[in-house]
């Protein structure tokens, strides 16, 4: 154990500066989202109609709007900070949902083989032949919008990727001697899968989950942009931008502020994910 701990420390010393920068950025966005009520200078839904579409730095009755206001005179900074909660919350929760569903099914398919395998893996093929954004658009349109529905829809449309990875990994791991040993010792399938197989396949699943986290953020903002996600007056980066699109000529900041945040967030997640993959998957390191 000490040897591997040492190896990890060695590796961490070689973390490239870009990864450190994006980690700090990511941590900052997460902190902003968590402490939104403390950070936001104003109530995100408070309308000041005399301060509509004002540019960054505008001051009205002693209140300074640092990044300007939107079409209803709401403070854009506060809306963006609260919007981070939606983006991160929906993405994180739906990644958790799809990981749980996908990994469980993948491990079952890889462990039991036979009929279980055929049914689960066929279902994976089918799910993957419907483009995720369409599946999400259709389901949200049928079920109606809402935070929890959005989480469930995104979570339940994206599990097949985890299943493929968990399945392939389980096939490999289940032939290892210590798994055979615990099987012979009488351990049940659930115990073996969750106590012995899962820890050994966690690395590749983490890689998928990171990539998916970035995608989920994009999907949520896309759906909200289309008006199918978080509903007004709640702020989501996608819905703020969809309003801002109509005022592009007069008030570019409404799109720019959440847009830059969204880009930085997804960029950070992607850079971090690439680095993580290089660390956990020795085969891709040379690339």
């Amino acid at each position: 154990m000490t040897a591997s701990a040492h190896a990890i420390r060695q590796r961490l010393r070689r973390v490239p500066p870009s990864v450190i920068v994006v980690s700090v950025l990511l941590a900052a966005i997460v902190l902003l989202a968590v402490f939104a009520p403390l950070v936001a200078p104003a109530d995100p839904n408070n309308q000041t109609l005399l301060a509509r579409l004002k540019a960054p730095g505008f001051t009205y009755r002693g209140v300074t709007y640092w990044v300007g206001t939107d079409d209803l005179g709401r403070d854009l900074l506060s809306r963006t900070v609260y919007g981070a909660r939606v983006s991160l919350g929906v993405a994180a929760l739906s990644v958790i949902v799809s990981t749980m569903v996908g990994v469980s099914l993948g491990m079952l398919a890889g462990w039991f083989r036979g009929w279980t395998e055929t049914i689960i893996m066929r279902l994976v093929d089918i799910m993957m032949s419907i483009p995720a954004i369409l599946l999400a658009v259709l389901t949200v349109a049928v079920l109606g919008p809402g935070f929890l529905k959005l989480v469930l829809v995104l979570g339940l449309t994206r599990w097949p990727r985890y299943t493929r990875v968990a399945y392939a990994q389980t096939l490999q791991v289940s032939n290892l001697p210590f798994i055979k040993a615990s099987e012979l010792a009488g351990a049940g399938a659930v115990r073996i899968l969750f106590h012995h197989v899962l820890p050994n396949i966690a690395g590749p699943i983490l890689i998928v989950a990171t990539a998916e986290f970035g995608l989920m953020i994009l999907m949520e903002s896309g759906l909200s942009f289309l008006g199918l996600g978080i509903q007004p007056p709640s702020a989501s980066w996608g819905s703020i931008m969809s309003v801002g699109r109509q005022y592009l000529e007069r008030a570019w900041w409404i799109v720019a502020v959440p847009g830059v945040c969204l880009f930085l967030l997804v960029f950070s997640v992607n850079v971090l994910g690439d680095w993580l993959r290089d660390q956990l998957d020795p085969r891709s390191r040379s690339r």
């Binding site: 970035g214 994009l218 903002s221 896309g222 942009f225 996608g238 931008m241 699109r245 592009l248 570019w252 799109v255 847009g259 969204l262 880009f263 997804v266 960029f267 997640v269 992607n270 850079v271 690439d274």
Partner: peptide
């Protein structure tokens, strides 16, 4: 390439329009 992957399609669309 990483940038292209991280810009939501609607954002690049709005940027182009702008």
């Amino acid at each position: 390439v990483v940038t292209g992957q991280s810009v939501p399609t609607f954002l690049s669309a709005i940027l182009l329009i702008f």
